[in-house]
C-alpha cells in the first residue's frame, strides 16, 4: 500500500504538483498497479543477467565534434520568456 505521504514524497521527487484529489487517486492507483507487479517476485532470477540491449548493439561511438544547427531561430522562438536572444529563467542560485 502506497500511503498519501509516500505519494507526496514521490511527487516532489518527480517535481509534479498534485491536487489533494490526485493524491488520493494516485495512492489507490499506484498501490493496485504495484500489487499486480508483485507477481514478478515468484520468478527465480538468481544468476540471471539483466538485459542491456535487445538487439545486442554495443559501444556505438562517434567523434565528439560540435555541428551547426541551421534553425536556431526556430529554437529561440520556443523560449517561454526571451530577453536579448537568451532564454530567461527563474534565478537558479
Amino acid at each position: 500500500m502506497i500511503s498519501k505521504d509516500e505519494v507526496k514524497h514521490i511527487a516532489s521527487l518527480a517535481r509534479i504538483g498534485l491536487t489533494d484529489k490526485e493524491v488520493d487517486k494516485f495512492s489507490h492507483d499506484l498501490s493496485s498497479i504495484l500489487d499486480w507487479i508483485e507477481q514478478l517476485k515468484e520468478v527465480d532470477v538468481e544468476n540471471v543477467e539483466a538485459v542491456s540491449h535487445v538487439t545486442g548493439l554495443e559501444n556505438i561511438t562517434r567523434q565528439d565534434k560540435a555541428a551547426d544547427f541551421e534553425n536556431t531561430d526556430g529554437i529561440k522562438k520556443l523560449f517561454p520568456e526571451e530577453k536579448d536572444g537568451y532564454d530567461k529563467v527563474k534565478s537558479v542560485l
Binding site: L40, K41, V43, V45, V48, A50, V51, V54
Partner: peptide, 14 residues
C-alpha cells in the same frame, strides 16, 4: 526489487 528484477525477467523471456 523493481527495475533490476524486471530487466532480469526480460532476459528470461528473451
Amino acid at each position: 526489487a523493481y527495475y533490476l528484477r524486471a530487466q532480469k525477467v526480460r532476459s528470461l523471456i528473451k
